[in-house]
Design a protein around this nucleic acid. Structure first.
Length: 868
RNA sequence: GCCCGUGUGGUGGAAUGGUAGACACUACAGACUUAAAAUCUGUUGUUGGCAACGACGUGGGGGUUCGAGUCCCUCCACGGGCACCA
């Protein structure tokens, strides 16, 4: 038979995309009667940078397969798409190219939407929106005011993380290794008035509810747990006196290891501590040290390499617990003002940092814990950090560390020198950004009344369009008219808050907005629609959002619940984090990256075309412009078609791992699609009469019985697994199972014992389980095979109706666990039957010649193992 | 330093404690072709052997088990996250 022509993806993909569009049915959210279950599938929405990259495609593919699969399973599915559209790059583009951020953003959205449409994702485009749409940020301003009324928003003068490149404040979460998460510039400290969300009001709940998120990766839960940094300990009171015994001030110290107090040999406070500031005024040496610390705190970074330094304040700290013994007070560079009370007591024998400090300044090291399984206290030149039994600690002697801890907290509370306390690392969320392209903060500054919220009738506070970017800084600040307004309280001349909100606010509730359809009043929360869809059943995105976005969104959900907007505690039921799409990267000897076009292969070596130097072919790296290893999705669609690209990003690697983009991989998918296509063409030509005689037949395979070949059943077994594999996000295995089925069908095509209609059924079933991955192709195949329903209209097949049990099993014959032979038996054969069958096998005879087996292990249809 | 993850052929990767290497890629061979591409059919963990058939083999070492890639202990390498958090 002549080899059929290649599958024409150009025509086919266009054809089906047009049909889906005109039928307006592909991704449209259906709410059908009959109490169907809902399924909300959401991929983390994207920033409109201008280009869709392969990482997006992989992310969206996971969601698209799940959404299509769940629809076929009979769920009502919500699968929306939108744009996280405020943010700095729009302003940078405005500066660089003299284009308005609004035009830049909406222009990018248009071109990215076109790119996405090439892939045929089953989104409900009717619900699409961008966070910079006025009707979206208007609601956000209302939420802000409601949270303000609830006491969840406040304004405070505080030290902030200032990014000198972006000219902007960053949240703690956005500072990575002392550098801005976006600009990479070293962060400075500045004193500024800022708006804060009181996320710490929800510390307990955010921490406790992590336990509810069993369908989140454990890794993400642990990261959040550590970020919140919950700890329990004792707040202990000290009195600080100078050398002459004059009382200077009281000092509170927080410790999670209060049981080591009798091993304390010094107290250390941070350079920003009020006591340090006070002492610096009169003592030049202290002032100098404090100044030095303030300098170095600006550029954090290699904390671990920083030597522990301190200065003796010549004062002593007294606790009633310590029998009138004063501990020398140091100002030390390793004590953080932002954690606890900014003061510690040092127990060098049982803490690494205290140990280093004591060694440096020759302070006593007193052991108070004897390791549990040891006769004596710590030996050697290191602190003992584990648990044990208290020694040399007065009334704590003989208690275990845990007992001692509980006891001393209780004791201190009783005698009134301390109390049980808890602390967390989590700080309130500073959301003021000195930028133009964001949601305006709806507040007004009045000289007489102070800060006054905008009244609801005056919402939204719209972003003015007539702004200039000719100077650095926030254009809202210098706008000639926009800032001027009347005080809602007294009517006097006042001015608007010029800061805008952190864009992470925008992405903290977008998944709620998607729940409302186009017809609903978008200026209010429609509780019925929101209640119908939330929580998100499958949330899919990158691990890089493990803390920032996911923590903020969880907080927002709880805050909105308390404002009466929603009725749920956690927004995302299951979270799935996918790996990156990587690609080979080429590096020149001098270190700069080369694109593949700048290289060639000479004598089996990759060399740089320009200067013939040997190029280092590095390990596969995440695709990025700077590494010049980006593969453009539309280019790939042009060459191989959308379905091949769709298939490739899910094949090969499990989706939670990185995948390497390769030419072989994508051509492999393209070839497989053609291979399946040829099968369909050959069948439909050979059995044209079958198709013509029974168009629109259902998928039912009537004649699966004992006469059906094992191969045929094997193919059915393979595709029967595919749904379960989708459910488990094991798309690579699902694709392997589909390969299996197609390979078997090739073997079957020429067999005489294949019933024609049965074979068509098998083709159709394989096609249908593959359809979530290759929707255009599958519609075409389905049509070619004469099915009158479209794939979209077909329910997921029920494979349990087929009798697919194997009739024979291959049993492994083992001696002492070593494989000696394989034996085909009828399925379910008993141990006796199997033993009878094999006792004459040479291998078995040889092994059993001199003695009987001590023991025979038999696992039905699997193994028989003789132990001799 | 702490926490988490990963380690299986030339490559990506399969494998409820039960026949390791499914599926795919690469490579090689054969068929088709004037030829090439494409396609189809084989072979492809290492190693000994003409063969039948053996030996070895899931980062290293040890253990539990009739049986370990899988469970336990320990070490190593790589990747990621957090990091002076009292």
């Amino acid at each position: 038979m002549k080899t059929p022509a290649n599958y024409n993806f150009q025509l086919t993909e266009k054809k089906w995309q047009q049909r889906w569009k005109s039928a307006a049915g592909l991704g449209k959210t259906k709410e059908r009667s009959g109490g169907r279950e809902k399924c909300y599938v959401l991929e983390m929405f994207m920033y409109p940078s201008g280009r869709v990259h392969m990482g997006h495609i992989r992310n969206f593919m996971i969601g698209d397969v799940i959404a299509r699969f769940k629809r076929a399973k009979g769920f009502d599915v919500l699968h929306p798409v939108g744009w996280d559209a405020f943010g700095l790059p729009a302003e940078n583009a405005a500066l660089a190219n003299a284009v308005h951020p609004k035009d830049w953003t909406y222009g990018n959205i248009d071109s990215m939407r076109k790119q996405l449409e090439l892939f045929g994702f089953s989104y409900d485009w009717e619900r699409e929106f961008a966070t910079c749409d006025q009707d979206y940020y208007a609601v956000q301003q209302k939420i802000f005011l409601d949270m303000y009324k609830k006491g969840l928003v406040y304004r405070k003068e505080s030290m902030v993380n200032w990014d000198p490149v972006d000219n902007c404040v960053l949240a703690n979460e956005q500072v990575i290794d002392g550098r801005g998460w976006r600009s990479g510039a070293p962060i400075e400290s500045r004193q500024l008035s800022q708006w804060f969300f009181k996320i710490t009001a929800y510390t307990d709940e955010l921490f406790q509810d992590l336990k509810l998120l069993q369908e989140w990766p454990e890794k993400v839960r642990t990261m959040q747990e550590r970020w919140i940094g919950y700890s329990r300990g004792l707040m202990l009171d000290f009195a600080v006196k100078d050398k002459k015994g004059r009382e200077l001030q009281d000092l509170s110290i927080y410790s999670t290891r209060p049981e080591t107090i009798f091993g304390a040999s010094f107290v250390a406070i941070s350079a920003q501590h009020p006591l340090a500031q006070k002492l610096a005024k009169t003592a030049p040496a202290i002032a100098k040290f404090v100044y030095m610390c303030s300098k170095s705190s600006v550029s954090t970074g290699d904390m671990d390499k920083m030597e522990k330094l301190g200065v003796d304040t010549e004062t002593l700290a007294y606790s009633p617990l310590l029998d009138g013994k004063g501990l020398p007070v140091y100002i030390a560079n390793f004590v953080l003002q932002t954690y606890g009370t900014g003061a510690i007591f040092g127990a060098p024998a049982h803490d690494m940092r205290d140990w280093d400090f004591a060694k440096k300044y020759n302070l006593p090291i007193k052991d108070v814990i004897r390791p549990t399984n040891s006769e004596s206290v710590r030996g050697g030149d290191a602190p003992y950090l584990g648990d044990g039994v208290m020694v040399d600690s007065g009334f704590l002697d003989g208690k275990t560390t845990q007992e001692a801890k509980d006891y001393i907290i209780e004791y201190c509370e009783k005698i009134g020198v301390g109390k049980a306390s808890k602390f967390c690392r989590l700080r309130d969320w500073g959301i003021s950004r000195q930028r133009y392209w964001g949601c305006p903060i709806p507040m007004i500054h009045c000289e007489r009344c102070g800060v006054v919220p905008v009244t609801e009738e005056d919402l939204p506070v719209t972003l003015p369009i007539d702004v200039t970017f000719d100077k650095p800084g926030n254009p809202l600040d210098r706008h000639s008219t926009w800032r001027k307004t009347k005080c809602p309280k007294c009517g006097a001349q006042a001015h608007r808050e010029a800061d805008t909100m952190d864009t992470f606010v925008d992405s903290s509730w977008y998944f709620i907005r998607f729940c409302q359809d186009k017809e609903s009043d978008l200026s209010v929360f429609n509780k019925e629609q929101i209640g119908r869809w939330l929580p998100v059943d499958y949330y899919i995105g990158g691990i890089e959002h493990a803390i920032l976005h996911l923590l903020y969104a969880r907080f927002f959900t709880k805050a909105l619940r308390d404002c009466g907007y929603v009725d749920l505690d956690e927004p995302f039921k299951a979270l799935f984090t996918q790996g990156m799409v990587c690609h080979k990267a080429y590096r020149h000897v001098d270190g700069h990256w080369l694109s593949p076009e700048e290289t060639e292969i000479k004598n089996g070596k990759v060399v740089c075309k320009a200067d013939n130097t040997v190029v280092k072919v590095g390990r596969s790296e995440k695709m990025s412009k700077s590494k010049k290893n980006v593969i453009s999705p539309d280019e790939m669609v042009r060459i191989y078609g959308a379905d091949s690209v769709r298939m490739f990003v899910l094949s090969d690697s499990p989706v939670d791992r990185d995948i390497e983009w390769s030419d072989e991989g994508i051509t492999g998918c393209w070839r497989f699609i053609n291979r399946f296509w040829r099968l369909v063409v050959m069948f439909s030509e050979k059995y044209a009469d079958v198709i013509a005689a029974a168009p629109g037949t259902t998928l039912k395979l009537d004649r699966i019985d004992s006469q059906t070949s094992e191969s045929f059943k094997q193919a059915l077994r393979s595709i029967a697994q595919v749904g379960e594999l989708y459910e488990k996000f094991q798309f690579n295995r699902a694709i392997a199972a589909i390969h299996d089925a197609v390979n078997v069908m090739y073997d079957l095509l020429d067999c005489a014992d294949v019933y024609d209609e049965e074979f068509r059924g098998l083709l159709l079933l394989t096609n249908i389980v593959m359809a979530p991955i290759t929707p255009h192709f599958s519609e075409e195949v389905n049509q070619k095979l004469g099915n009158t329903k479209t794939v979209q209209e077909i329910d997921w097949p029920d494979f349990t109706v087929y009798k697919l049990q194997k009739e024979t099993a291959i049993i492994a014959v083992q001696v002492n666990g070593k494989l000696r032979a394989k034996l085909s038996v009828s399925a379910g054969a008993s141990q006796q039957d199997v033993e009878n069958m094999i006792k004459n096998l040479d291998v078995v005879k040889k092994c059993l010649s001199n003695c009987c087996a001590k023991k025979v292990v038999f696992v039905s249809d699997k193994i028989i193992n003789f132990v001799v």
